[in-house]
């Protein structure tokens, strides 16, 4: 009886608070801020911005893991006079103008296909799958002991004519893909 009562109490408390709120510095929120910050550390070739009005587009390929934080983060922000825009894609074919592309988990499984069809387009690819950077992705979020580290594959970025600032490279783990 006593055990039942205790368990019920716990479940009630959990149920009452469930959905009411989520952690404020959640993993999703911090990753959203990282994505936004990357724009400052990457130089795109001129062709990536056809005119001065072109916004800086952050795309999400596949399911959106950011719980709305990405839209919230870039709202009203500008970089060198350009506005930010968030777009969501179901397939690679839908991607037209895009500067930073987050490839979320289910889509990340077909990373080889995705990188093949993006080949040499100046899009910074970001993901959090295991081996993302080794398999041709440019930046991977690694959640390690409650902190987010970065792995960067500069070769993949170079191939897409992107220049990643040494300031960002310095704090990241540099990945050199081997065997391909």
């Amino acid at each position: 009886m006593a055990f039942l009562r205790v368990t019920t109490a716990v479940l009630l408390v959990c149920a009452a608070r469930l959905g009411a709120q989520t952690g404020k510095a959640s993993e999703a929120q911090v990753k959203a801020v990282f994505l936004f910050n990357f724009a400052q550390f990457v130089d795109w070739p001129p062709a990536a911005f056809p005119d001065t009005e072109t916004p800086l587009v952050i795309g999400i390929l596949g399911a959106d893991p950011f719980e709305g934080f990405l839209d919230q983060t870039v709202r009203g922000e500008q970089l060198r006079g350009r506005a930010f825009q968030v777009r969501r894609y179901r397939s690679v074919e839908e991607i037209k103008t895009c500067h930073i592309l987050f490839i979320s988990r289910p889509a990340g499984d077909r990373l080889d296909e995705i990188t093949a069809s993006l080949k040499n387009r100046p899009i910074l690819t970001v993901g959090d799958d295991d081996g993302f950077a080794e398999r041709g992705g440019m930046i991977r979020f690694v959640t390690d002991r409650s902190r987010i580290r970065l792995q960067i594959n500069p070769q993949a970025a170079e191939a897409a004519h992107l220049t990643i600032s040494s300031k960002l490279l310095r704090v990241a783990e540099v990945i050199t893909p081997t065997g391909r």
């Binding site: 952690g23 404020k24 510095a25 959640s26 993993e27 929120q29 911090v30 801020v33 990282f34 936004f36 910050n37 550390f41 934080f69 919230q72 983060t73 922000e77 959640t143 409650s146 902190r147 987010i148 580290r149 970065l150 300031k167 960002l168 704090v171």
Partner: peptide, 20 residues
């Protein structure tokens, strides 16, 4: 807050304990 997070440097973001 989201605003406070945006003011952090990349290093500070990396040192932030995330509540996953």
């Amino acid at each position: 807050s989201g605003e406070a997070l945006k003011k952090l440097s990349i290093e500070q973001l990396m040192n932030l304990q995330v509540t996953s």
